[in-house]
Amino acid sequence: DGLVASLGANGVTSNYRYDLAPYTWECAKGLRNGQRALFTQPQMPIKCAGAPQKAMYLTADHLRKQGVQADIRFAPPGPSMFGIPFYAKALDKVVADYGITPMFGHELIKVDGAAQKATFRVSDDQGSREVEESFDMLHVVPPQSAPDFLRNGPLVDSAGWVEVDRETLQHTRYPHIFALGDCSNTPNSKTAAAVRGQAPIAAHNVLSAVEDRADMTRYDGYASCPLTTSHERVMLAEFGYDGKIMPSFPADPRKPRRFYWWIKQSFLPWLYWRMLKGNLGPDWHRTRSFPESLPTAIRP
């Protein structure tokens, strides 16, 4: 409530609207000692679950380099920094290193830009209630859904997403229909890497259905979320269904690395454009095991 009218002024911004990304940077650079920056995240699923945190970490990194001590807070509706505990524990250290305050169980429901007030629905052991927080900067990630022509049609589940088998991508009620990407109800992170993994599965299985073959292939839920923890390092979170850790490289993926920054900055944009033309590029992800203890020297 009030978000659309508030965006682009009084410190209210969202990188989910591309034209506001420059304003996000302007707001971040304008923060001063003691001022408060709130970064929100709605209920899942959303496009790129790491994007709300990326903007926050880049802001925190800039302020640290400038010697500015602002009050940065992260407000997701869930109980942790990330849906995969393996990565959530590492992100806890990143947040602590920056001095960011997590506000778990907070769902943004109203924005008053002129008054610089944000209202949250808070759910915890005490039940559900509404609380108001002041801000000098508010980065909002809006709730997301399938387009109305899908959400209001016969193909979706009770939550409004196209209902498919999570492995074959075939519709559970209409076997001649397949779906992939952000609008399907597959329980994976909605990322370009996920689509890259789903595309050949869907293509093969459509042909199998058309030709009445029984050789359908299966999608393992793979998704990749390059979490930009600073202007120089990225934590490359790769995972599949049921929380399986599926990195492309043997190094512990919980440690932010400069090499992953290069991948994010230089390789992935090149790969995206090839993907749109059908050239999916290499795929090295696999299920790997790592010690439960965090690697040493985790830092943004």
Results as ranks from 00 to 15, higher is better:
124 D>G: 09
52 P>V: 02
56 M>F: 04
75 A>N: 07
99 G>D: 05
76 P>N: 03
133 E>C: 10
160 G>P: 09
92 D>T: 07
87 Y>I: 03
121 R>T: 13
161 W>E: 12
166 R>W: 14
83 G>F: 00
89 K>H: 08
93 K>H: 14
129 R>L: 05
160 G>K: 12
119 T>N: 03
79 P>S: 08
139 H>A: 01
150 L>A: 14
141 V>S: 04
118 A>R: 00
125 D>Y: 08
162 V>H: 11
118 A>L: 06
53 Q>Y: 04
132 E>Y: 04
62 H>K: 14
67 G>R: 05
75 A>W: 01
108 L>I: 04
102 P>I: 01
137 M>I: 07
146 A>I: 11
131 V>K: 10
134 S>H: 06
101 T>A: 13
91 L>Q: 14
127 G>D: 00
58 L>N: 03
57 Y>C: 07
131 V>W: 10
81 M>A: 15
160 G>A: 15
109 I>N: 12
119 T>R: 05
157 D>V: 05
90 A>W: 05
70 A>N: 03
117 K>W: 09
63 L>R: 10
142 P>I: 00
150 L>Q: 14
75 A>M: 08
94 V>I: 14
58 L>Y: 06
90 A>G: 07
53 Q>H: 09
148 D>Y: 11
148 D>N: 08
112 D>Y: 02
137 M>N: 10
116 Q>P: 02
91 L>Y: 02
77 P>N: 04
130 E>H: 05
109 I>Y: 08
92 D>Y: 00
100 I>Y: 04
114 A>R: 12
61 D>M: 05
128 S>N: 15
102 P>W: 02
125 D>L: 13
119 T>G: 08
125 D>V: 15
54 K>W: 01
141 V>Y: 05
158 S>V: 12
152 N>P: 08
145 S>C: 06
129 R>V: 11
156 V>H: 11
128 S>W: 01
127 G>P: 11
70 A>Q: 10
78 G>K: 03
87 Y>P: 12
113 G>C: 02
145 S>T: 15
136 D>S: 02
62 H>Q: 13
104 F>N: 03
64 R>E: 10
164 V>A: 10
55 A>C: 02
98 Y>M: 14
109 I>V: 15
97 D>L: 15
146 A>V: 12
66 Q>T: 09
68 V>N: 02
87 Y>W: 04
76 P>M: 08
127 G>K: 06
66 Q>S: 15
137 M>F: 08
86 F>N: 12
105 G>P: 11
106 H>L: 03
142 P>N: 02
96 A>C: 11
101 T>C: 10
131 V>F: 06
93 K>E: 14
70 A>I: 01
53 Q>W: 01
74 F>V: 00
141 V>E: 09
141 V>R: 04
127 G>V: 06
144 Q>H: 09
60 A>S: 10
108 L>G: 10
104 F>P: 03
166 R>E: 06
83 G>H: 07
110 K>G: 09
162 V>W: 09
111 V>W: 06
92 D>F: 04
121 R>A: 12
98 Y>K: 15
163 E>F: 13
142 P>K: 01
139 H>T: 07
52 P>N: 01
58 L>Q: 10
154 P>S: 11
